[in-house]
Design a protein around this nucleic acid. Structure first.
Lengths: 315, 315
DNA sequence: CTGGACCGACAACCACCGGTTGTCAATGCG
DNA sequence: CGCATTGACAACCGGTGGTTGTCGGTCCAG
């Protein structure tokens, strides 16, 4: 049982409103929670701050005496917090490429309260991002950790943060364009086309394993530069099916998106960082990204990742 | 994840100590809990406040910027709480006996701003004070924690707060009255006389260890009731030397005080309280009493305490 | 008088917070 | 090399503080 600044703030707002329901709304709590909080404060202070009836709330003499001091303490607290909140270093994160999920995840995570300042880089693959991470040039990188050079560097930690479904993208006049959904086996006679992952060996490895697993012919187009270019590359395909993240915006381009199901083909996104002494904004980011999804079991008929991705890299 | 005043207080204390272990003691936490609390604060603020190695703790630039603001916020918070707390319950403290150091220490500490309301008791020994403390009848007690019954109760915390020198007190016509200072060995042929500590086994233990260490004959007079009575008891001694705290006022009584040096004989005063949820006035008192003195090393030629007193009781 | 609206508080529930203990890794020193 | 010191990680768990559901008291209109 202890007095805390949140109690003082709750008291100050309730004293201003003299109505627990309105004060609760301002504090983003339920009325009951506010009632409890004020009660706890009174118990901790050993005195009543409000006289309450079912219809009115009034300050006691002790409450009136306390109010200016409480307001002062809350203001001093806010000043202290604000004095340091504005001056932090930006978090430097590599998001692989703008077309993919990491950028969106990072945007969402960094926009929550308190907002994180973030500096982006797009090295298009952990081959380039991991050395930068190890040199301290960036604080974190998104990518696929399997099919990267072994041994995995001991100073790096990683965590799976997303399994992004891949869908088929075909021109509107493609044979498969009218389908509601496709199974991987449906792609076998057409084959798939994706932009060459260039230096990103981990994604080349992923695609190779995907096509081996489902017996799909694989062709790499020229590397894509931005989403618009990707859409163009897919539109050029006459037979092969473009394969891309579900989040790709194909609207208005003449490109049609068809979900792949049974199993969904999942693209595993991991975040990688230096284990030792991560800066607090990175901790905040990691917390906001959460514990990540569960990997599908080997025999899961509904979701697929490569077998390699079920094994830990950072033993 | 939220910033709170306890985080600010932890930061302020850690910034003052620049040593997490000592700061944790002051805050009545384990070191790990403090480490975590600081980490949480840093995460919530989005910036590092300390640079830590296994051997040193330094403020960052952000930490230095934040510190005065944090101190200000904590002070404003304490002022607010204390402004309404003056109507709270008095702090109940046992000071052993009016003749000794604890009463003076408590008076000084409680007189500081904001003043603490205190209720005294004098149970003359931790044998009586500890059960009262455990029963919640008092909030704290002063005494010597060694040579008390084992095991030390887990719910009780303690801290050394003073090492009070003992001096010799002799009638003006005593053989040793003209001396500027005495060494313990000088007392050997005369022996020492002190009032019987009655139920205070911890002080009986202390005196026994003292006399064993320096080969001093020890005699207990009748128990003393108040300082005036103590002075009378010492004046009655023909050969033996009275032993008492330096702070005893012997002026105008015909009693002469002679310092004991090389080594000074130090009386260790500890404060004891229930670990769990100490009331805020007790927190304030503990803060004002400070970290306490350093115990002399075993081989220190200038200051002496019993060997037992160098070992922790609250393991 | 009755029914409905308003308002703060009680009760039950539970996610998670923040403490503890145990242990580890890094560092410094004799 | 062994030992001491120091901050942090890991596992654990009691309890905190929120939520939803409900209650009792009060007021007012029909």
């Amino acid at each position: 049982m202890d007095v805390d600044i949140h109690g003082l703030r709750a008291f100050a707002v309730a004293a201003e409103e003299l109505h627990f329901g309105r004060a609760a709304v301002r504090l983003h709590l339920s009325q009951q929670a506010l009632s409890k909080r004020i009660r706890r404060l009174e118990d901790a202070l050993g005195t009543r701050l409000f006289e309450r009836t079912t219809r009115s709330v009034e300050l006691t003499a002790a409450g009136r005496r306390f109010l200016p001091r409480a307001v002062d303490a809350v203001a001093a607290f806010d000043r202290a917090v604000d004095s340091v909140r504005t001056g932090g270093e930006p978090l430097r994160v590599d998001v692989y490429d703008e077309r993919f999920t990491p950028l969106r995840m990072l945007r969402e995570a960094s926009a929550a309260e308190p907002p994180l300042r973030v500096e982006l880089s797009m090295r298009q693959g952990l081959s380039a991002a991991l050395p930068a991470l190890r040199r301290g040039e960036i604080d974190a990188a998104f990518g696929r950790v399997h099919d990267t050079p072994r041994p995995w560097p001991a100073e790096l930690a990683c965590r799976l943060v997303r399994l992004e479904p891949l869908d088929a993208f075909v021109p509107a006049d493609h044979l498969l364009a009218g389908r509601e959904a496709l199974r991987p086996a449906d792609l076998r006679e057409h084959g798939i086309a994706v932009p060459d992952p260039a230096g990103a060996e981990e994604w080349r490895g992923y695609l190779t394993r995907l096509c081996e697993r489902f017996g799909l012919p694989l062709r790499f187009t020229e590397p894509a530069i931005g989403q618009g270019h990707l859409v163009e590359l897919f539109l050029r395909e006459k037979a092969a099916v473009g394969l891309g993240e579900r989040s790709i915006d194909a609207g208005g381009s003449g490109l049609r998106r068809v979900p792949i199901v049974e199993p969904e083909i999942l693209m595993p996104w991991w975040i990688v960082w230096r284990r030792r002494d991560p800066p607090p904004p990175l901790r905040t980011l990691l917390r906001r990204l959460g514990r990540g999804p569960r990997l599908p079991a080997p025999a899961d008929p509904l979701r697929w990742v490569p077998d390699t991705d079920r094994h830990p890299v950072d033993a």
